[in-house]
Simulated scan of single mutants.
Amino acid sequence: MKAIRFHRHGGPDVLQYENIEIRQPGPGEVRVRNHAIGVNFIDIYMRTGAYPVPELPFIPGKEGAGEVVALGDGVDEFAIGDRVAYVEAPGAYGAEHNVPARVAVHLPDAISYEMAASVMLKGLTAQYLLRRTYLVKPGDTVLIHAAAGGVGQIATQWAKHLGATVIGTVGSRQKAELVHLNGCDHVIDYTTDDFVARVQEITKGRGCDVVYDGIGKATFPASLDCLRPFGYFVSFGTASGPIPSFDIMTLAAKGSLFTTWPLLPTHIAKREDMIDMSRDLFDVIASGAVKIPAPNRLKLVDAALAHHRLETRQTTGATILLP
Results as ranks from 00 to 15, higher is better:
55 E>F: 14
55 E>W: 03
55 E>P: 01
55 E>K: 15
55 E>N: 12
55 E>A: 15
55 E>M: 14
56 L>C: 11
56 L>F: 07
56 L>S: 11
57 P>L: 13
57 P>Y: 08
58 F>A: 02
58 F>V: 00
58 F>H: 12
58 F>G: 01
59 I>L: 10
59 I>N: 11
59 I>M: 11
59 I>Y: 00
60 P>K: 04
60 P>C: 05
60 P>S: 03
60 P>G: 06
61 G>I: 01
62 K>M: 11
62 K>D: 05
62 K>F: 07
63 E>W: 01
63 E>Q: 09
63 E>L: 06
63 E>M: 04
64 G>S: 13
65 A>R: 03
65 A>Q: 02
66 G>Y: 06
66 G>A: 10
67 E>S: 09
68 V>Q: 01
68 V>P: 02
69 V>S: 10
69 V>H: 03
70 A>S: 13
70 A>E: 13
71 L>M: 13
72 G>F: 06
73 D>A: 15
73 D>E: 15
73 D>I: 09
74 G>A: 14
74 G>K: 12
75 V>P: 07
75 V>N: 10
75 V>R: 09
75 V>A: 10
76 D>G: 15
76 D>F: 09
76 D>Q: 15
77 E>K: 12
77 E>G: 09
77 E>C: 10
77 E>M: 14
78 F>K: 10
78 F>N: 08
78 F>W: 03
78 F>C: 13
78 F>G: 11
79 A>V: 10
79 A>L: 11
79 A>P: 00
80 I>Q: 09
81 G>V: 11
81 G>Q: 11
82 D>Y: 09
82 D>M: 12
83 R>Y: 00
83 R>V: 03
84 V>Y: 01
84 V>L: 08
85 A>Q: 06
86 Y>D: 07
86 Y>I: 04
86 Y>F: 11
87 V>Y: 00
87 V>E: 00
87 V>W: 00
87 V>L: 12
88 E>N: 03
88 E>R: 06
88 E>G: 05
89 A>S: 15
